[in-house]
Amino acid sequence: MAIFLTKESKVLVQGMTGGEGMKHTRRMLAADTDVVGGVNPRKAGLVVDIGDRRLPVFGSVAAGVGSTGADVCVVLVPPAHVRSAVTEAVDAGIGLAVVVTEGVPVHDTVAFTDHARRRGTRVVGPNCPGLITPGQSDAGIIPADITKPGPIGLVSKSGTLTYELMHELRDTGFSTCVGIGGDPVVGTTHIDCLQAFEDDPDTRLIVLIGEIGGDAEERAAAYIRDHVTKPVVAYIAGFTAPEGRTMGHAGAIVSGSSGTATAKKAALEAAGVRVGSTPTETARLAEGVLGGLQG
């Protein structure tokens, strides 16, 4: 089992013919992702050879869906074009849109995530590495060779910390790893993933990675307390960050105690979550909890 992405998922890449699009399409194919084509209105009709695959380029998402039955799109277009790309995918009936692009204007994200929500499309991102169900499919830019299938579900704001925890827990493995992105507005939240992992029978433990800024982790803690029965282990990045600064893509300015790493840690621990002080300690906590479940 997995959440959001399986071996049956058929993926279109919006921006496939660009440099980044070609690179990451090649990597997705190497991970056994069923990439069925790309979308570029200026290059419709082109066929791109990648390895032993010949991938058609469609002039629109609707044309790609109609021809291939695609149900997932990976968006690798410049920030100014993301809103129209996601809107087009939603209107074409795509069920999952993975927006890797960073630097998307927040008002654009608000518009396309609202449109997607009303039409029943899940958006992951923007400014995210995407998601991977090891051994089945990889939609985005997450390295596929640093872990294996297993019983842990991972949800993370940070792309690089997603990779680090995947590597730290590579001997145990994951059901699905989701990098939700750290922008102020994202399409899929910690809570969305917590709910999906709670419902997934093959996910036995959840690892949550957060960052300073905003209140997403505090809201996740409240959800865990009230709705999650599976064990959760967490890591919060930013304990040494100066207060009052916007740090990287944390998504908000830290003010007072709201949004600080200490406040987030306290909220999660009050909900019964074990919180590691480093990624390595978090991984060891996860292994210990999982070992107790198996024992």
Rank of each mutant, 00 (worst) to 15 (best):
M28A: 05
V99Q: 08
G295M: 08
T280V: 14
G18P: 08
G153Q: 12
T25M: 05
R26G: 02
V75Y: 01
S156P: 01
T68N: 06
C193H: 03
D192T: 12
E211M: 11
C193L: 12
L268C: 01
N40S: 13
D183V: 00
H81K: 00
L12K: 06
K230T: 11
P149R: 13
D202H: 14
T229N: 15
D52E: 14
P41V: 03
T162K: 07
A2P: 13
K7I: 05
S158H: 01
G210N: 02
G187S: 10
A252V: 00
V233F: 02
E164R: 07
A144P: 06
M16K: 02
D200K: 12
I132W: 09
V13K: 08
E102S: 13
T17R: 09
V36S: 01
G182P: 05
T33D: 08
T160S: 06
T260R: 04
S175H: 05
V155P: 00
T280C: 04
A30V: 09
T33F: 07
A139S: 04
I152A: 01
A44H: 01
A267W: 08
S258A: 13
A44D: 07
D91K: 12
T113S: 12
M247N: 13
V11N: 00
I236A: 01
R54H: 15
A266I: 13
I253P: 10
D49T: 14
R117E: 15
G251P: 07
V254S: 02
Q195W: 01
C193M: 14
A266Y: 00
C177Q: 06
E269V: 12
T203F: 09
G18M: 03
R117Q: 13
